[in-house]
Design a protein around this nucleic acid. Structure first.
Lengths: 136, 136
DNA sequence: TTTGACCTTGACGCCCAGGTCAACCTTTAG
DNA sequence: CTAAAGGTTGACCTGGGCGTCAAGGTCAAA
């Protein structure tokens, strides 16, 4: 799979793909003529990268996430490079972001329905009870 | 409440506050000597702004959100300036973002627990069943 | 063999969310 | 009166995530 094809398949530009590589997020093979060669898993990988970048994470952040999101065939569990506690912290960061966005969402919905109750107003900053199901 | 106090209270810098104002996100009063004067609701408002900006939304996006998140005392329901369908679309955008982040989170947790099942691997891009409770 | 589509590596440019510095005014404390 | 702390505008700078040429190599089709 060449770069243009990957670009179309993953919905990002060729430029972005080269940038991701430069940032150490992708390491494609090279064909004999120097063309970048990607395998099928790159599509999902690139989508994940774009997803995280467009949600306020930096390329450096993403470097920390990726090894644990990769293909899924090998190296899962505590075998994924970054230390377990590092990933755990990232999960916590994600939970925070999700909670915050959920709070915003709920307030918008309340605004729409016009059913905002006094208790729930102006409380976005102190996250209203949001609990993610903790996988145990 | 002067700008420095608001900065400390809301956890952003003075510079950021002036930038927000320049972007039309804040309209503080001015004291006789030209100092910016904010009321108490500004704290929550600023936190909301920062929250959205740090989650991949632009200042322009935020301009669209704010009137419906404001103080909460008046102008809720379909009385909030942006058209109802505009806000509805923003809610949808939020739902997408939340779903995507949740998917990433779940995959990270799976990587941690080492219990990733084949069906759930490589599926981040096609959002695994995530359903926000739709307020009805 | 020439055209066109695709690829390569630079390198410069842009936008956005601020950081930083300069020059200056205002108010309170000593 | 003077210093310190906080405010003002204006201007330029920065870092991240690309957009956009420029100049050229490769390859299949006509």
């Amino acid at each position: 799979m060449l770069i243009g094809e990957l670009a179309r398949a993953s919905g990002v530009t060729v430029r972005a793909l080269r940038y991701y590589e430069q940032q150490g997020l992708l390491q494609p093979e090279r064909t004999s003529n120097g063309y970048r060669q990607y395998d099928g898993r790159a599509v999902t990988k690139v989508r994940n990268i774009q997803l995280l970048l467009s949600n306020g994470f930096t390329a450096q952040d993403v470097r920390g996430f990726l090894p644990c999101l990769d293909d899924g065939e090998v190296s899962l569990g505590p075998a994924c490079p970054p230390s377990v506690e590092a990933v755990t912290r990232k999960v916590e960061v994600l939970d925070e972001r999700i909670a915050e966005l959920s709070a915003v969402r709920d307030r918008l919905v309340q605004a729409l329905t016009g059913s905002a109750t006094p208790q729930q107003l102006g409380t976005i900053a102190r996250h209203p009870a949001y609990t993610r199901p903790v996988r145990k």
